[in-house]
């Protein structure tokens, strides 16, 4: 009989390797890379679990990113994702092999499947994580950089009260995620049950370097992103055309704020932010984006942020490395010319 509270019986880190139409989802490689780090900190194996029909061929590449082993389940019934079949296979595999950690990408499939598995296994699941740690020193170092917590509060994170006794979290997975639209961060643990489960936000975890370069140009992973916001409302078509021209000049892609997506000016796959995608390009140019916290949550880790906005009090300027107060319809054509000239002068 499977018993999720028999902590000692569980070992190894597992990653659900999501494929669609026989192609590995890019997030899988991010998860394998992150899973490798966790497995090393625990001194255990990293395993992938891959479900599909005739998908053996795409398993070996997971080794490039650090997987020690991949469990592959092939069946015509698993070709396309269904909640029932995938939940059955995964929970049966967990009951048989007992991994201590199980990670999923926070895709529309991962977020459908993981809660169902967690409920069946009677264990905890943390949604949409942006940071994972085992090692306590690394975790506390992360808190020093990423939080405003005082030293003594950080020091106290080494244990929690559990049924009246102090429980050391040294071997627990510490799962950090944004809550309340990014206003607050929380670190969650699952101390009494295994596996500790998490869905991980796509685009956040760094993928290991490898030889593969031929990937579809996509918002996640783009080096240059030019995003538009409500500021283009005056002339949506022209605003989008300017953003595209600037993005082309830089070899980048066009993103957008939620306002533009909600207004139907641009497709939802362009959306950056809490409900959209998290990106960390080399350069993020925000055109006419006021910078609501939900938007910032998706882009503030960019290496260089440039903001153009008519309103000098726009919150976007608080996280920008460079800001220009002005009308994007005037500034962008000038900026394109300036960049061309600067590149030509090199």
């Amino acid at each position: 009989m499977f018993n999720s509270s028999d902590i000692e019986a569980f070992k190894n880190v597992w990653v659900f390797c999501e494929q669609r139409n026989g192609e590995m989802m890019p997030t899988t490689f991010e998860l394998i890379s992150e899973g490798r780090k966790l497995a090393d900190e625990l001194g255990v194996e990293l395993c992938g679990i891959l479900l599909g029909d005739d998908v053996d061929g795409i398993a070996p590449e997971l080794g490039v990113y650090g997987a020690d082993k991949v469990y592959v389940y092939n069946s015509p019934l698993l070709k396309t994702f269904t909640t029932d079949a995938y939940t059955k296979i995964i929970t049966d595999a967990v009951a048989e092999f007992k991994p201590e950690i199980l990670l999923f990408g926070a895709s529309t499939i991962g977020r459908d499947l993981a809660p169902r598995c967690a409920a069946r296994l009677h264990t905890g699941l943390c949604a949409d994580c942006t940071h994972l740690d085992i090692d306590l020193d690394n975790y506390q170092k992360f808190l020093k950089e990423a939080s405003t917590l005082p030293e003594d509060r950080i020091e106290r994170t080494k244990s929690v009260k559990l049924a009246g006794a102090d429980h050391s979290v040294a071997r627990d997975l510490k799962m950090t995620r944004p809550a309340f639209g990014g206003h607050l961060m929380a670190s969650i643990i699952c101390p009494r049950f295994r596996p500790a489960m998490a869905t991980v936000r796509p685009g956040v975890m760094k993928k290991r370097e490898n030889r593969r370069t031929a990937e579809i140009l996509h918002l996640i992973g783009a080096d240059y992103i030019v995003s538009v916001g409500r500021g283009i409302s005056k002339d949506v078509e022209k605003g989008l055309a300017l953003a595209e021209e600037l993005a082309n000049e830089l070899g980048g892609v066009v993103g957008a704020s939620r306002a533009c997506v909600d207004a139907g000016w641009i497709g939802a796959d362009h959306q950056v932010g809490q409900t959209g995608k998290t990106v960390h390009p080399k350069v993020y140019i925000a055109l006419g984006i006021s910078g609501a916290i939900q938007h910032k949550a998706g882009m503030q880790e960019s290496e260089c942020i440039i903001a153009v906005n008519k309103n000098e009090t726009a919150p976007i300027f608080e996280c920008a490395d460079y800001g220009i107060v002005g009308d994007l319809f005037k500034v962008v054509p000038e900026l394109i010319e300036s960049i061309r000239a600067a590149k030509a002068a090199k």
Partner: peptide, 26 residues
């Protein structure tokens, strides 16, 4: 099954450089 270990507010990034003007020279 899950417990909150800690919660915190992320630090605000410091303000960057504001460039004066909205013309070609800027």
């Amino acid at each position: 099954p899950t417990n909150i270990l800690t919660s915190f507010t992320p630090p605000q990034k410091g303000a960057g450089m504001m460039l004066a003007g909205d013309g070609k020279e800027t």
